[in-house]
Amino acid sequence: MSSSFARCYRLTKTDEYSSVFGFRRAIRGRWLMLHYQPGQPGGSARLGLVVGKKLLKRAVDRNRVKRVIRDQFRRRRAELPPVDLVVRLAARPDALHDGQLAEDFLALLGKLTAHRTKREAS
């Protein structure tokens, strides 16, 4: 299986982001917030990223956050259910450590699968 981040695995249009935000389901981590919406049956997980200038002024820092999250998504995409995800930076990290950002994102994915299995069971 390819571990690329092809266009079919991304949220690209404003309407796609708006529909995920409009679904109003979110999980908060230490620095990140994960908004999610069930995707199309038979499809795959898709990712969108929002890292604003308000929290990280330097473009190099914003790009680093996005790079870490995209990398973790690529590695875990096959394990994820068909869901549209928007990851947003919710708090300014004191110091940017790739490992801590990756752990926060993976913890959010773990909570997401726990929420989904709870709902399907009831």
Results as ranks from 00 to 15, higher is better:
T14N: 10
R7V: 04
V51M: 06
L56S: 00
S19R: 14
G99N: 10
Q40D: 03
A91F: 08
A121E: 07
L112E: 01
A102P: 15
Y9Q: 05
N63K: 07
A45I: 00
E79F: 14
R10W: 11
V20I: 09
D98T: 13
I69V: 07
R62C: 02
V50I: 05
L55Y: 06
R30G: 01
D84Y: 14
L55F: 08
A90N: 08
L96C: 08
F73K: 02
G39A: 00
L106Q: 13
L55W: 09
T12P: 15
A59P: 05
Y9A: 01
D98A: 10
Y17T: 01
P41S: 05
K111V: 05
L106T: 08
V86I: 13
Q40W: 13
S19E: 12
R25Y: 12
G99H: 14
L80A: 03
R64D: 09
H115A: 09
V51G: 05
D104Q: 09
T12A: 11
K13S: 13
R119T: 10
I69N: 03
Q40M: 07
L108R: 01
S18L: 14
A26D: 09
R76C: 13
A91W: 08
L32S: 01
A59E: 06
R30S: 04
T14V: 14
K66T: 01
G99I: 12
A107F: 08
L11K: 05
A121R: 15
A114C: 10
V60P: 03
S44P: 12
R24S: 06
P38G: 02
G48H: 05
R62T: 01
A78D: 15
P38L: 12
G22A: 04
R7G: 02
S3E: 06
L85S: 03
Q100H: 11
H97A: 12
S18P: 14
L106F: 00
V50Y: 02
L112Q: 07
W31G: 00
M1K: 12
E120N: 08
P93T: 00
V68A: 01
G52N: 04
P82Y: 10
D84Q: 11
G29Q: 02
G52R: 07
G29F: 08
A107S: 13
E120K: 12
Q100L: 11
E103I: 08
R70F: 09
G29A: 05
R70C: 06
F23N: 12
R24G: 01
Y9M: 04
G110H: 13
H35I: 02
A78S: 13
R46A: 00
E79P: 15
R74S: 01
G48M: 07
R46M: 05
F23E: 09
V65D: 07
P81T: 01
S44L: 09
L96Y: 01
F21K: 14
A45E: 03
R62A: 00
V86Q: 06
R24C: 04
F5K: 00
G42I: 04
H115R: 14
D71H: 12
R75K: 15
L55C: 04
R62P: 14
S3A: 08
T117H: 11
P38S: 04
A91E: 08
P41M: 08
K53F: 14
G29M: 11
E79M: 10
G48P: 13
G39P: 15
R62N: 00
P82C: 06
G52D: 06
K66I: 02
R75L: 12
P93Y: 05
A102L: 12
R77S: 03
L49E: 00
A90V: 07
R46H: 08
R7D: 07
V65M: 05
A107D: 12
G22M: 06
V60T: 00
